[in-house]
Design a protein around this nucleic acid. Sequence first.
DNA 1: TTGTATGCGTTATCAT
DNA 2: ATGATAACGCATACAA
Lengths: 364, 364
Amino acid sequence: MESMPRQRRQKEQTATRRATINDVAQLAGVSKGAASRALSPDGGRIGRETIARVRAAAEELGYVPNIRARSLSAARAYAIGWVMRRDPDVLTEDPFFPSFLAGVEAAISVRNYTLVLSIVTDELEEPTYRRLASEGRVDGFLLSDVRTRESRFALLADLQVPAVALGAPGPSCPIPAVGIDDRKGAELATEHLLASGRQRIAHVTGAPGYIHTHNRQLGWRAALRKAGKSYCAEGIADFTPEGGAKATRALLDSPEPPDAIFYDNDLMAIAGMAAAMSRGLRVPRDLAVVGFDNIPMAAHVAPPLSSVATDTRDWGKLAALTLLDAIDGRGTQGQVMLQSGLVVRRSSHAVPKHANGQGGVSNQ
Amino acid sequence: MESMPRQRRQKEQTATRRATINDVAQLAGVSKGAASRALSPDGGRIGRETIARVRAAAEELGYVPNIRARSLSAARAYAIGWVMRRDPDVLTEDPFFPSFLAGVEAAISVRNYTLVLSIVTDELEEPTYRRLASEGRVDGFLLSDVRTRESRFALLADLQVPAVALGAPGPSCPIPAVGIDDRKGAELATEHLLASGRQRIAHVTGAPGYIHTHNRQLGWRAALRKAGKSYCAEGIADFTPEGGAKATRALLDSPEPPDAIFYDNDLMAIAGMAAAMSRGLRVPRDLAVVGFDNIPMAAHVAPPLSSVATDTRDWGKLAALTLLDAIDGRGTQGQVMLQSGLVVRRSSHAVPKHANGQGGVSNQ
DNA sequence: TTGTATGCGTTATCAT
DNA sequence: ATGATAACGCATACAA
């Protein structure tokens, strides 16, 4: 017999080799092509009886199409990519993660897509996008943490891979976007603080340079402006508990300290409350606090934290669906904004008139 | 001209078509096979000069090997899978996530592997493993949240895919494991509470049925036993803030309430502290608290939370490397245990002898 | 409707 | 050392 390189390998695996479409075709007594058509969902020109026979054969053999072969043939990866840039020093727990991913998974798994996730440092971000795209690992990207000066749009255009932005980057964004309405959420929070009688509402921001940070800032300002307030102290932070605590201390040290603070996320808000309370301030009496994200922890700190809430799972699902559409060439060019609501808890309760804290006049 | 289906597509893409190994070979004036060899890292039997010429051509064309074709040919996915089962209602922020993933990425990216991540519900767990394996999407799995009665070992054996367990499942585990020493960590925490003068050290567990929950329980018990303590009140919880708060209230309501609580994670510990304090208890004076994970938030709550710390990033890196070894047939069958340390903060500070809380005598 | 043949891009084997 | 060619498994254009 002639030498048989491949055969050797097959021989070894024979006992457990996975069935290919060839095996199915053989068992069904049809050609490979016919089997392929019979198995394809859109059932092209193929006899009903043949379809039944082939499917029965496939069932019997436990046939599962090999995605690698299909990928090569179809020039598709059947996968989407998500590259997250994270400073290794600031790998804070991200409330965004699990539920957003669950939503993504729900959307893509029914289409037999998978998610390729990488967490990278600054300098590896662009190379990672390039690698994933040029190797043909993914058919599109989810773009999180969109920056105000965003270099990835050009990169993606260069790579010729569709993408969906996770956020609300505004009209200049060249790709579809699905995001929560950060501006509206921030406005909601600020208006609530105003309604609860607060006079000096400060803001502690997330990391600068991000669209969502920017939009939350806009929302806070807009609400203050509408209410005719001129006080607008702001602390620049970075979404981390430590950053939130620092910014809070700085605000409280200022000559005209706030009587309320809106934080760009819950992690900072919780740390901020702790910082304020450890100085003897009472929350909400002396300082009202509202966060963003409504993480599960928010309801279980003391005092329970008010927060802007969004359905993160829906967000993930919608973003993934939009990306799949883009991959299929069904370009929904628009931007979708998910609404967010405010969950009011004790941290921002109104102070009874007879007991408003420092600087109050009042006697009931 | 005849109809040209494939050609048409190629024509359209011609302007931007990615270079294949054929293009490189042509430009270098060699055969496809020679080009392949010249490009392969282990440079087989091939002339030095040819190598140089081919590599230059590849460089010039910006050639990147197509992973899909390589996958088909090599019968490898060049990807590892991680299937996380998560109850959609308890999608709590997972401190484990980002830094662990960063470690995984660091290990696999240099080998040109990617991570396929899915978050699934109970009933989709097994089908997801099956799909990923039988479609040939991944070459191996990372197995997190190992259960005391673990059905996935059999599943993986059936699927014939290597895997690495994330944890310390004990000697009966049929696959290699990389985990932190939960038992030791829990012991450390408990011993510290004993050393700080606590008499009644309770435990609030994570979700039952998991190896790490079990091991932390063992560690807590062992420390108590060694110290000759008989008090061992325990609340069964689930790793969520809400569960931690409930268990805490139950413990405090018991006829003999604890003067210290060790929690299986920080989320529960933080919520537990809040629950205790909202009842007027002072931490650490009336109740000392230690958590597990040392999340960034731990240092920024009031009072700052003592916690068992591990290098999650290293963990991810080591686990991924172990999996890659297993995929390559280099079976490191053993189990690796990463050490963890205790970070002591105010929540567990010793109570000055003259001022021990309830039941204490104390003045000053 | 069905079978045949070809291409996807790579690696590996064989013959030169 | 190099070139030619088969093979990976699937989808599809084309002929029958």
